[in-house]
């Protein structure tokens, strides 16, 4: 009796310790976030004004905004996501659904994980050789392609993982009522894995929205307004990079403000996407 009681006690204690550690982990994560976000808000917020969104990047010593950089970032990120996400989702679908046990899947999974860790500057150089050099000039399209290549491995990895976790019973139920494979995938597997796939896309957006290195050798940057996809285009990360390391106060201020804008945008996107996928979850 007493051993059973002490076993119970020790299990309870163990549980208590582990759960306290988990709470502590969450605490640590939140403290880090608060520290970084605090610094970002402290330095960035004072520079937020209407002119940030209506004026072009200024020369040193002048007041100005980030309009061309914000526009460029939005355009290239959207194209990058539009190009990269379908490829990533489809490849992930093949790996989890059609070719779960095929050799190709094993190879692609391996290769994809390597692609995940390829330094973004290497991707930038690849696209430079692939597009910029043959075209003879830098272009926003090349930048978007570099971003798309960064999107793909993240989306592939999450899509495959999430589809693999969809219980097979669901698929079998779909097949049992006569639905062909692709309808089962679309209407059953995607639905069940939706929130996870969205997480993957969000992580991909978060990753590319702050990337400097792949844009430097592809889209370059632009001091002026340009909406020409075939010409150098400004982007927030490259602008932040150039301004943050400059000696001029106005530029440094704009760099912090730009960083704050990127962070808040990613947050807003997360909330938005979560509210779309989450409604079903809570039911």
């Amino acid at each position: 009796m007493s051993t059973a009681a002490s076993l119970h006690q020790s299990r309870k204690r163990r549980n208590g310790v582990m759960m306290t550690l988990c709470v502590a982990a969450a605490g640590i994560g939140l403290v880090w976030l608060a520290l970084i976000l605090g610094a970002l808000l402290y330095k960035g917020l004072s520079g937020v004004s209407l002119s940030v969104f209506t004026e072009m990047t200024p020369p040193p010593g002048d007041a100005g905004g980030l309009l061309n950089a914000i526009y460029g970032s939005i355009v290239m990120t959207i194209i990058g996501i539009i190009v990269g996400t379908p490829i990533g989702v489809l490849a992930g679908t093949y790996m989890a659904e059609y070719g779960r046990f095929s050799k190709l899947t094993t190879v692609v999974r391996f290769i994809n994980d390597i692609l995940l860790s390829a330094p973004s500057i290497i991707i930038g150089l690849f696209v430079y050789e692939l597009m910029v050099r043959p075209m003879g000039h830098f272009s926003a399209i090349a930048g978007a392609v570099a971003l798309a290549i960064l999107v793909i491995p993240v989306v592939v990895r999450t899509t495959e993982d999430m589809l693999n976790l969809v219980p097979n019973a669901l698929r079998e139920a779909g097949t049992a009522i006569g639905a062909p494979r692709w309808v089962v995938i679309r209407s059953v597997a995607y639905r069940a894995a939706l929130s996870g796939i969205v997480t993957g896309i969000l992580l991909a957006i978060a990753r590319i929205s702050g990337e400097t290195a792949p844009l430097l050798f592809t889209a370059l940057n632009n001091q002026f307004w340009s909406s020409n996809l075939n010409a150098p285009m400004a982007s927030l990360p490259v602008t932040i990079f150039q301004f943050a390391l400059s000696p001029y106060e106005e530029w440094q201020q704009l760099a912090w403000t730009g960083a704050l804008i990127i962070t808040l945008t990613v947050l807003a996107l997360s909330i938005f996407a979560r509210s779309l996928t989450g409604r079903r979850e809570d039911k």
């Binding site: 020369p59 040193p60 010593g61 002048d62 632009n222 001091q223 150039q242 530029w251």
Partner: peptide, 25 residues
């Protein structure tokens, strides 16, 4: 040279309408 090129380019564009996009890579 990037900051001074940026400043020159800005003034030059206002004066002549010709933009010169210099980037520090």
């Amino acid at each position: 040279i990037y900051p001074v090129f940026a400043k020159w380019a800005d003034t030059y564009k206002k004066d002549t309408g010709i933009g010169l996009n210099y980037q520090s890579i």
